[in-house]
Design a protein around this nucleic acid. Structure first.
Length: 693
DNA sequence: GCAAGGTC
């Protein structure tokens, strides 16, 4: 009997594809714990087998001693990296299934990476002529109907354009990233005779540059004083603040004049403007939006949210999280998911309201995804789910419910006042119809500002006229959520990699803090790159790649030619690097030393005004905060022994001791002061909270 | 050691 092998990108997709094309139920089997599916149809045997993303990766042919290197080949991922051990049984399973197969179908996601994943599997595991004979399944959602249709309308060959651009993408990223990273590390070695792990890449370096530019803006910012004038009223026991219409006075004498004119003068209500407006329900979550909301609502970093969402997905509670889609196709079965969610106590009432409607129609967003719908709950019971995963699940459920609800109707009121000819105003806001806000619950809370009744012409006497000096503020720092949004807007990285690449930039000590600051090392690194390899620091490289990829895709450009061009360009850049190796290395090595030292300084010693630093005891190997003037000063504080300690550069408002943040794997970072006897810790380890008696 | 991309 003939045998067809269908190669899928991941286990979950293999299950869905097998179920969709089988007339009956496919048989689920396992090979070295890799699940695969068997079915018989039209007199032939079909085997559906999953990959685990990329099973092959690029590896240096020779150990990397010097640059430039372009001698690189594809190897099974587990051979290049011990951490990829999980991919080994998948490689073995596919090789086994391919042995007696005479037809091959690449059914990975229909995008550049999916085409590359399938192509590598075909050429390395299915025989030398498999890529030429293989067919391609093309689908844009994993719904049974579409999968069935894709199977019945197979593309007769691989999408060789996508394959070639995928292969080129991997090689180009590797050429640029590995060589420039190596050049920087070698420079430090040449100047300081020590190894420092430095890196550059098509995504990480432009991202660092964005952060660095903001850093420069903040440093160059000169605050300007300005003055505000506010009239304060007490109406029916309510305090109302009206601001002078010219919100900022940059001319002090002008402000003083206005203040003088208005002093002790009554206000007259000049105009009341009432406006009603509707806010549409939010679209369902794509990964980026989920990361952004989880940061806003819970303070979770995008990397943490991604990890939590993956865990919810592993437990079948939510759909595939690495999606850029804001669409919910009807095939997911709105009513069924809703009614199952309705069985969860806290959502019962809300769900009833939605199910009682004539039509269920989600308010979708614009973004789409080649293989997955927006993130949504599956309806599976979240029994026993607690802590951060529960919170994230609640956010996802409420977002899903909100998307089916009505717009919210809000009313804004603006009251314009006249005080001795000077214009002042204040605003009120009320919610007329809650609409989706009711479903989004705590995450959509908008503060109402309810005002007493006013009439035009009415007179009021201010209880106070405030004259206040303020300063203009520098542009805000990026935080992990806003920089990821910026990366998305600039098309840097992908939904699945942005949070990881940001984490990498932190781990390299290029940046620090939640309000992201660029360290000395980050600054010198980006400056060196701007000086010697501006290409890699510019988003233009990504744009250039993209144009070339597109040309390769539609056959207008040859992959080999694009790669040769890249090598030539890189060789010139790296030569320049080499020539200035010692001077570049000196600067980077020095910056590295300073940055590492700064990370150990926690604050000022309260006893002698020396520096409190993280010190690891030689004797006990435990760490503590000790004074830099030791042995003259022996002041010290204990430190938590686990997790990364980040100095906050602030002191405790209660006791004045330096503040730190503790980042521990798998838990939310927390802030504390160093003083173990501080009143802020009075309730720590409160048995009432931990153990109900 | 070094990238960015996919997966769990």
């Amino acid at each position: 009997m003939k045998k067809t092998l269908i190669i899928c990108e991941k286990p979950n997709a293999a299950g869905k594809i097998a179920a969709a094309i089988a007339d009956g139920k496919p048989r689920r089997r396992e090979f070295k714990s890799v699940p695969y599916y068997e079915l018989e149809q039209d007199g032939k045997k079909i085997v559906v087998v999953p990959a685990l993303g990329h099973l092959f990766t690029l590896k240096n042919v020779k150990p990397l001693r010097d640059y430039p290197v372009y001698d690189v080949r594809w190897v099974p991922a587990y051979e290049a990296d011990r951490r990829a051990a999980r991919s080994k049984p998948f490689v073995e399973a596919i090789a086994e299934m391919a042995k007696d197969a005479d037809e091959f179908i690449n059914a990975c996601d229909y995008d550049i990476e999916g085409s590359t994943i399938g192509y590598n599997i075909l050429r390395y595991l299915c025989g030398p002529d498999a890529p030429k004979r293989a067919k391609r399944m093309k689908f844009s959602t994993l719904t049974a109907k579409e999968l069935r249709k894709a199977y019945e309308n197979l593309l007769p060959t691989l999408d060789i354009g996508l394959v070639n651009s995928g292969l080129a993408r991997h090689l180009l990223d590797w050429y640029w990233g590995i060589n420039v990273s190596k050049a920087m590390s070698s420079a430090v070695e040449a100047a300081h005779k020590r190894f420092v792990k430095l890196s550059a890449g098509r995504v990480q370096t432009p991202t660092l540059k964005i952060l660095f530019e903001r850093e420069k803006e903040i440093r160059a910012f000169v605050p300007e004083p300005y003055w505000v004038i506010k009239a304060i009223f007490e109406v029916g026991g309510q305090r109302i603040e009206a601001l002078h219409k010219k919100e900022k006075f940059f001319d002090k004498s002008e402000a003083e004049k206005v203040h003088e004119i208005c002093r002790n003068k009554p206000a007259r209500v000049a105009k009341i403007t009432v406006r009603e407006y509707r806010t549409a329900p939010p679209p369902p979550f794509d990964l980026g939006q989920l990361q952004s909301e989880a940061y806003r609502c819970f303070g979770y970093t995008p990397a943490r949210t991604q990890q939590l969402a993956q865990s919810l997905y592993d437990n079948a509670l939510i759909s595939y999280p690495r999606t850029s889609s804001q669409k919910l196709p009807p095939e997911i079965g709105y009513a069924e998911i809703l009614s199952r969610i309705g069985e969860i106590r806290e959502y019962g009432e809300l769900v009833e309201k939605l199910l009682g409607r004539e039509e269920l129609k989600p308010h979708e967003g614009k973004k789409t995804d080649p293989a997955h719908p927006a993130i949504h709950p599956t309806g599976e019971s979240p029994k026993g789910l607690t802590g951060p995963r529960r919170r994230l699940y609640d956010l996802i459920v409420r977002r899903f419910l909100s998307t089916f609800a009505d717009p919210a109707v809000k009313q804004s009121i603006r009251i314009d006042l006249d005080v001795a000819g000077q214009p002042f105003y204040f605003r009120g806001r009320r919610i007329m119809e809650k609409g989706w806000l009711e479903f989004y619950g705590p995450y959509g809370a908008t503060e109402e500002v309810l005002l007493p009744e006013f009439k035009e012409g009415q007179e009021l006497m201010p209880t106070e006229l405030v004259f206040e000096e303020k300063e203009t503020q520098p542009p805000p720092r990026y935080n992990p959520s806003s920089i990821i949004k910026e990366m998305e807007a600039r098309n840097l990285g992908t939904k699945a990699t942005r949070a990881i690449i940001l984490q990498n930039i932190y781990d390299r000590n290029y940046i620090t803090g939640n309000q992201i600051e660029v360290t000395e090392l980050g600054e010198k690194t980006i400056e060196a790159l701007l000086g010697y390899c501006p290409e890699i620091a510019s988003e233009e490289l990504t744009a250039h790649f993209e144009r070339e990829m597109e040309k390769i895709q539609n056959g207008q450009s040859d992959k080999e030619k694009v790669l040769e061009d890249a090598k030539e360009k890189l060789n010139k850049i790296l030569e320049k690097f080499r020539k200035h190796e010692v001077e570049i290395g000196k600067v980077l090595g020095e910056a590295y030393r300073k940055t590492r030292r700064a990370q150990k300084v926690l604050g000022e010693c309260p006893k002698c005004h020396g520096e409190l630093r993280i010190i690891v005891s030689r004797r006990t190997k435990k760490r503590f905060a000790g004074c830099s003037n030791y042995p003259k000063c022996n002041y010290s504080y204990p430190l938590p022994q686990r997790g990364k300690i980040v100095p906050l550069g602030k002191t405790c408002p209660e006791c004045g001791a330096p503040m730190i943040q503790v980042n521990r794997m798998g838990s939310r970072p927390y802030r504390m002061c160093l003083n173990p006897d501080c009143v802020t810790k009075a309730n720590w380890g409160n048995p009432r909270k931990n153990k109900p008696q």
